[in-house]
Design a protein around this nucleic acid. Structure first.
Lengths: 225, 225
DNA sequence: AGCTAAGTGTAACTTAGCCGACATTTTGCT
DNA sequence: AGCAAAATGTCGGCTAAGTTACACTTAGCT
């Protein structure tokens, strides 16, 4: 990969904003680059050496298989997100893989050890990274707090609001979200059964709170959700 | 506070092992020290400047008040744990306080800004700290995954196992835990009602899986929990 | 165009565990 | 010792939501 390209791939992640052009160029930490298309499965936790990934384009879901063989969605990764062993501790045993949700994705990756070296040489970056991980933790805490104390309907609404805020195209109070999830995916994210999710979505549709189809979700008034 | 004392207070936290005696002494980052006894409430999030706290002795619980005025336990902090704004991002709004559970506690604290400076000057420490925060995140993820997918009984068992591992005194397969929690506390931690927790504990007691009282919990065979 | 698999819609049945409403026990305090 | 408050024990009704089960619709492939 051309040096310049590497530069641009890291450049627009907010984490690396503190670094100068020449600094990033010197690093050359990107060692992998991959494109994949819808439905494809990408294994990463089992791979040879621990890596950190950066999703450049598209959407993927991180799926784990539990002991009984059930799929559970661990995370939805959007364009610009880092994923993989963000804790810088490789844990051997976990059975996770990524599944491509959007039409196609571009992923670049670097070795965890390279990244560690980088952090050691750039304390400012290390501090930013810590805050970044901390922020992720705070988000997780929040969403789990929701999962636990609220009922399914509230959870669905909260999820829709979050999604709309992150990715929706807003027009006044109306928001349109590109829908790359199935109702089953949504159900898993908000930790309910597929049937319950379907029911709740239809209920909201009859109340004209939203219009749902497989391509997009339109919310006429986000403040009413 | 004497320099030497400061040294010792930080010294035995694993995070600071990488630093030499003279380094820690130079830092002098401990700016606060506090003792408190059972039942006392310590406000910290609202305080003037953002701080990070280190619990030197005893146990406390971090409690949050939600919109409806309900108490929820966010965390149980044990001797040696760091708490407060570990993410290095002060968030203004959250209504949290700490309540002392053990007979007495000793807490020391330092300013977040001082700690940040320290991290900037010690890249190795910064990296350790990042991993430390990452580990905390992983723990949280795990325990929440339990909360969501398992039933109350399984959650109680998991909680007891974790607690036993962290603080229990082991004698073969038997474990004795000093019990500084009420059944209501336990219920909140495993996210169930007090009544359900009581019922489950009694059920386990009749099955001779444990013996419970307000001072201690004795588990004859931890492998059977 | 036609087939298959994936995704969606709907209903009846079942259940864990929340909640309210007590009684009883223990603890801390004066 | 005596009192109040906190902690624990117990019960039955109630409800959200999981489960089972099946029909229908859409998307993707050859």
């Amino acid at each position: 990969m051309y040096e310049d390209l590497k530069y641009w791939y890291l450049r627009d992640h907010k984490l690396f904003r503190t670094l100068s052009y020449s600094q990033i160029k010197q690093l050359c930490i990107i060692t992998g680059f991959k494109k994949a298309s819808k439905g494809e499965i990408i294994y990463f936790s089992t791979s040879d050496v621990p890596r950190i990934f950066l999703l450049k384009k598209g959407n993927i879901k991180i799926v784990a298989i539990d002991d009984d063989g059930n799929e559970t969605i661990k995370d939805i990764i959007q364009k610009g997100d880092l994923f993989g062993e963000l804790t810088l501790e490789s844990d051997n045993k976990n059975e996770e893989y990524a599944k491509v949700l959007s039409d196609d994705v571009a992923i670049c990756s670097f070795l965890m050890s390279d990244f560690e070296d980088l952090l050691l040489r750039n304390p400012t970056l290390a501090l930013s990274y810590t805050k970044f991980v901390g922020l992720k933790m705070k988000r997780i805490k929040n969403s789990y707090a929701n999962l636990i104390s609220k009922d399914a309907k509230t959870r669905l609404c909260q999820f829709l609001k979050d999604w709309a805020e992150q990715e929706g195209v807003r027009d006044g109070n109306a928001v349109t979200i590109e829908n790359y999830l199935t109702q089953n995916d949504i159900a898993q994210i908000i930790c309910t059964s597929r049937q319950t999710a379907t029911q709740l979505l239809n209920e909201m549709e009859t109340k004209n709170l939203l219009s749902y189809n497989r391509k997009e979700i339109m919310i006429p008034d986000i403040t009413k959700i």
